[in-house]
């Protein structure tokens, strides 16, 4: 009976993996299809219909812009400084938001104390806060970082709170009956149970961090991808705007992929929906 259970289990696993692989292949096929359609439309509009390049530069124009930006010593340093700002602002947001979110989920006092403030600030548009930021933090790196921090922190706190709140109560009860007390409830049950969800929260918030970066760099900046886009607009260099957008988009895809990869690596036990 035992060995039967084992083989049927293995078989089930194999089938499940086979289905998963099939799903992956289908998904990849459609990714390629969508890339082909986008590129084809772009080529069609620029090479054949010949849309005014001030509105839509051709792929060749954009490639040329990349070369100009690269040889002009702008592309790499600006990308790095933007990356630095995003990561730093996001890092501090995560550093504070994760513990606060966990505390808000597990303590009515903390929740009651912080909910009004967080709820209020969350709805303030970050763009409207930039004048204040400049007033308080100047126009240096600190201000850029703070824009990203404010833009992501308040969202992230609530997302983490929600994730931790949805840890099944029976899991906590089970740990109590096994003798878990005090801080061990956090370190040995609540945190490990919530980590994959928190990782997803971080991944989603990272996208917003990039949005706020560009906002931060549109005002009072003299470096970075957002600044580059802004300046290109002034000189009607649409090809360079596109180059900047492509860099930001690609960095977004890469960070997103890294988060997913890390999540899979760190949480092999996690059951994702649809898998």
């Amino acid at each position: 009976m035992q060995s039967n259970g084992f083989t049927s289990f293995k078989l089930k696993k194999k089938q499940a993996e086979g289905e998963k692989d099939k799903g992956k292949v289908v998904s990849r096929r459609y990714t390629i299809l969508s890339l082909i359609i986008i590129s084809a439309t772009w080529c069609l509009l620029t090479f054949i219909i010949r849309v005014n390049p001030i509105f839509l530069p051709s792929p060749l124009d954009v490639a040329e812009a990349f070369v100009t930006l690269y040889t002009g010593g702008i592309l790499v340093p600006y990308t790095l400084i933007s990356l630095y700002r995003v990561l730093l602002g996001f890092f501090f947001a995560a550093l504070l938001a994760i513990p606060l979110g966990i505390l808000m989920a597990s303590s009515k006092k903390v929740e009651g104390f912080s909910a009004p403030f967080i709820g209020f600030v969350r709805y303030l548009p970050v763009t409207a806060l930039i004048p204040l930021m400049i007033l308080y933090f100047g126009i240096g790196e600190l201000e850029k970082m703070m824009v990203i921090f404010v833009g992501t922190f308040f969202q992230l706190v609530l997302m983490v709170q929600d994730t931790v709140s949805s840890v099944p109560g029976d899991l906590l009860k089970a740990s109590y009956t096994l003798g878990t007390r005090g801080t061990a409830v956090y370190t040995r049950v609540l945190l490990p149970a919530a980590l994959p969800g928190i990782m997803d929260n971080l991944r989603i918030c990272m996208g917003w961090a990039w949005t706020y970066l560009v906002i931060a760099e549109l005002v009072a900046a003299n470096s970075g991808l957002g600044f580059m886009i802004m300046r290109s607009q002034r000189f009607l260099k649409t090809d360079q705007i596109f180059a900047g957008l492509i860099v930001i988009g690609c960095l977004g895809i890469i960070t997103d992929y890294l988060f997913r990869y890390l999540s899979r690596l760190l949480f092999p036990w996690y059951e994702r929906l649809g898998q």
């Binding site: 029976d170 899991l171 740990s175 009956t177 096994l178 149970a193 059951e271």
Partner: peptide, 18 residues
């Protein structure tokens, strides 16, 4: 609650990360 009284629940309460 205490470790002198173990409990088995109807719902599955294994720690999924272990």
């Amino acid at each position: 609650p205490g470790p002198d009284r173990g409990m088995v629940f109807q719902s599955y309460t294994l720690f999924p990360w272990l």
